[in-house]
Design a protein around this nucleic acid. Sequence first.
DNA 1: TTGTAGGCGTTATCAT
DNA 2: ATGATAACGCCTACAA
Lengths: 335, 335
Amino acid sequence: MTAKRPATLHDVARLAGVSVATASKALNGRRHVSTTTRADVLQAAERLAYSPNTLARGLVAGRTGMVGLLTSDLEGRLSIPILMGAEDAFGADRTSVLLCDARGDAVREGHHLRTLLSRRVDGLIVVGARPDPRPSIGRDLPVPVVYAYAPSDDPEDLSLVSDNVAGGRLAIRHLTEVGRRRIAHITGDPSYSAAHDRAHGARQELAAQGLELAGDRVYFGAWSEEWGRSATRMLLARHDAIDAVFAGSDQIARGVIDALHSSGLEVPRDVAVLGFDNWEILAASSQPPLSSVDMNLKTLGRVAAERLAAAFDGKLGSGVEQLPCRLVPRESTAA
Amino acid sequence: MTAKRPATLHDVARLAGVSVATASKALNGRRHVSTTTRADVLQAAERLAYSPNTLARGLVAGRTGMVGLLTSDLEGRLSIPILMGAEDAFGADRTSVLLCDARGDAVREGHHLRTLLSRRVDGLIVVGARPDPRPSIGRDLPVPVVYAYAPSDDPEDLSLVSDNVAGGRLAIRHLTEVGRRRIAHITGDPSYSAAHDRAHGARQELAAQGLELAGDRVYFGAWSEEWGRSATRMLLARHDAIDAVFAGSDQIARGVIDALHSSGLEVPRDVAVLGFDNWEILAASSQPPLSSVDMNLKTLGRVAAERLAAAFDGKLGSGVEQLPCRLVPRESTAA
DNA sequence: TTGTAGGCGTTATCAT
DNA sequence: ATGATAACGCCTACAA
């Protein structure tokens, strides 16, 4: 409620009747402190509710224990899992995350970048809004930078992305494992490289199994339910014997399910539907619950943190590192 | 990429051939510095790409320019808008936000709290996962605390919440304005005070207009699509002449729409449907797009920041402050 | 107008 | 085992 100045090491030392140096050692568990002295100091700290000033500590250590998370993801759908993964990897007590939302605005991003650097963050994680290459935030920054989800367009930077090709393969493998053979692929905006990568992976796996893509082609369109619905209608109008749809996103998948139901088809009995993103709120509450490919964003965050931590002492790698996706089966593809 | 030590004020001063004190004054625009000296210093700073160390500055100023955002909201649906509002109010360059996710774990929350305090944040915003009173994080904290979305159970704390009663009234007013008279209310888990508040507001406004709740009672259940569906079926089984449903959440609303469609009813022609939360991803991609009551979370964040800023010099208020909701009309309630 | 000196809270070095 | 003391980078009296 009110403002009483927090106790300093000085206060603790004085109360314990020792010097600040001794108090510091005692509190940090360093050697060369007698057991009794240590106890005295600890007790004094306790009494004063002493909490070390991390700022001052950082000043001398040359490390702040903070990393910046620079995102353009307006809803937090990407940045929150990534943040959680990073927190897990760092250990929340040693490293805190400063979250800055650039809201897709380059000016604001530059602004946040300067602020973060002036706060002397130990490292930076840059999260893009879409999984395509994005402009690098610069080469000669004083701290290591890891790009997550959206890779940097500078090959010298280190980027961590989901392996969308493998994700596409994974999707088809799952559908064939549950016995489907006539699989169509409805996906989103063809200007997204991720759409092509997933489609490419799907084709690879189909070919490997001697199957062909149902519906004659990949249905590119938009990342929306509406596109899922209309593409499905187009697909059904061909009167192909479809028994599964691999959708490029969960939103599309919901549209697909919707259109299938409208046509009197049952999911998964007549047609299995598989989504992508595993956006919990959409996938779990879908009717039936939607199987989906999860991009392991939390792992992405964890690995980003690990790479940063490694870079704190040593050097950072470069290039694009692909991380595997994971399949989350629910009822929409039940056997 | 690599680690070259950032320039310090010392470096700038040396390059400009002045003392650090003069350099400091020049850079901070203080008086008693000759024009030429100032120019020299600025130029030196420019050449060295000098960026002041905010930590060191905070150490002497006694203010860090950081606030902690302690959340339990796993998806960021609440905390991200609140964070954005806070950023707007503070001005992102003066104040940064440390986001910590307690993941609904009291131990982790205490941990984060200690970390934030030891980082000497200037203030704290606590965001709960559900809009019911939550345990206070403590009375005698050294910094001002504002609770957002979920109020503190300690009346001495300052809490900012959405006015759910007014939200309920708003919902009914909108539905009657588009000509509906037989309005039912399907809402979520009755253990949520927000469910009762919204229902209460709805009843108030209905009474004020001389109307009665259709369906005989408020349908409490769960915050899920599934409940929306089954409640709607129950409702329709009564063969009342419903012409609108006010749903307690967007998820419920989607279930309602789904069940209405299954019964051959058209939205909004036969039955208008209004949601609550205005969760963009759900509301906008619904079929038809869902009108919804928005809790103005961004405003909540902005006001939280304002209250904190006011508390930095002066004292913080207490009690629960209710902020108005806003209606976002889409097609599901079109006239 | 400019520079010197002290202090913010901590840690680390080096005497004692 | 303990305690001065010097950093860390910055700001601000106060002196010159």
